[in-house]
Every structure is written in C-alpha cells, then in structure tokens.
Amino acid sequence: MVGMKIAGIIFSPIIGVITGLLLTGAARKMVARVEWRYGPPILQPVIDLIKLFFQRPPSHGKTFDYGLIASLAGSIVLVLFLPVGRLCPLSEGGGLLLITYLILIGPLGMALSGGEGANPYVSIGISRKLILSLGYEVTLLLILLSVMSEYDTISIFNVVRAQSENGWSLFSWPLVIPGLAYLLILPAILGVKPFDVASAPQEISSGPHVEYGGKYLALSKLEGGLSEFIGIALFVNLFLGGWSIPGSLHLPAGVLGVFLGVLVFLAKVAFVFSLNVTVSASFPRLRVEQAVKYLWSWPAFIGLVGLIIVSAL
C-alpha cells in the first residue's frame, strides 16, 4: 500500500505531464488531418519545449516568474489529488471540494504572472478566461454536486470505486443527465475551439501568453497540456469509471493490475480527448458573451435538471 502510494506520488504527475504534452501533439496532428493537411509529428510539442528551454526570454519581474511557477506547480499538485487509474496517492484527502479549489491555482497563477507583463492583451485574455470559467463553472458545479449527492461522498476516490462496482455513472440513471451536461461543457473546460476566446491568437495575440517567450512559454505549455489532461481525467473519473472496464471483466490485482488500470484510464482519456478535438476542429470561435450564453442555457439547464432529479430521488 505504501509502495503504491509512493509510486503514485512519483508517477502520476509524470503521467499527467507526459499525457498532457502528447495530447497537445496529437491534437495538432488530428486537427491537421481534419483540415486535410499532413500535420506535424506527434512529438512536435516536445521539440518545441526543448527549443524553448534554450531560448533567452525577457522577464518582467518577480511576479512574472513566480506566478508561472506557482501555476504549473499547482496543476501538478492537482494531479496528485486525482486518481490516475489506480494510482491515487492523495485523492483521499479533501476530495472533490479540494479539487474545485486547486483547479484555481493554475489559471490564477498564470493570470498574476501575465499581469505583471503589463500588456493589455493579457488583461483581456484573463478577463475572458474568468468570464468563460464562470460560464462553465455554473454547470460544472451542478454536475459535481449531483455526483457527490448521488454517491453521498465528497471523495473522488469513492466515486470511482463505486463505479467499478455498480457500473459507469454515464450509463446509469439518473447520473446520465449530468454526464451529458459535462460532455456539453467539456470543450469549454479544455479551452479548445469554439471556446478558445481566452487565448485567441488571431484577436488578442494569444492573450495571457503574449509576453511569454522561451522557458515561460514552455512552462505555460506544460501547464496547458496538464490542465487539458485534468479536465478530461475528471470526466473519466466521475463518469467513465476511472480504471474500471465495463462488463464482467476485472483487472487483476497487484502491479500488473495497476499498470493495466493506468492504461485503461489513459485510453479513456484519449478517447474523450479525440471527441473534443473533432468538435474543436470543426467549429469556429464564439465570442465570449455568446459562449457564456450558450453555457448558461442548455448545459446549465440540463445540469440543473440533473441535480433536481438526483436530490429528489
């Protein structure tokens, strides 16, 4: 047990970072294919990272540096509190409520860092990011509350374990309703098109990242990949049963089981991610108020209905 915990502490952030990075690469490739291009190699983000770490970027001050460091560190810590397959080192403590707050560190750290860059594009981007977050958080909170009320726990680990026994939430009544709502807001959580207003390169020169060069950009790319991973991992854990396989199949115990569990988990993550990339590749960008109006209409309504049904049952 202790060994697994240590393994989890060491491996789950690594898995998170690497998966996040690879997902960005895969996304570029997939978008290229949708656009009938050949596309860059999947490892292109890694190449970019290596280059970026060797560049000599300008710095705007202490907050510029430490905000970004805090942002990445916060996101990595968040992974420790998420079950990654059966690796769930700290997910007992705090549970989903802690996660809803830890999620804030990443964007806020980046916002602070960008803020000292003193560029209006940063401010606009962050303003949009916060508004958009408010847009999807309303629904997300409804969904989280539905899940927590249904399973009567605040621990995400218990939610996953319950699913491995009773089947995935997405395919069980009444959690299918919040599950659908989650699917509807997932692109907004990931910040991909049509919800990429916050870092729209064409309008506001990539928003919060406008002053980032070199290792700053590298860290922010790592953070971006990681937060995409987190957004999907949350969905997979809450609604797709984390490591569990549908049907009567059970993973073996022991190290092999843990390994297979992580693989199953990553497969689910990849699947959900590819869904989102397809959506994002085929839609144009929404303005922020359009996005908020969308997020507050159908997804929020479905989420609300879900919460009402869950709390009534």
Partner: peptide, 23 residues
C-alpha cells in the same frame, strides 16, 4: 514548487526588461 523552480532556474537565463518593453 521547488522542482518547477529548479527547472525554471536551470534553463536559459532571462533578461530583465522594463514595463515599456511590451508587445
């Protein structure tokens, strides 16, 4: 945090610029 900071410190140096030097 310390690890990220170390990563940050050990990669290439930065140059301090003023506020006016903005995109």
């Amino acid at each position: 945090g310390v690890m990220v900071w170390y990563l940050f410190r050990s990669s290439a140096e930065t140059t301090e610029v003023s506020q006016e030097d903005s995109y």
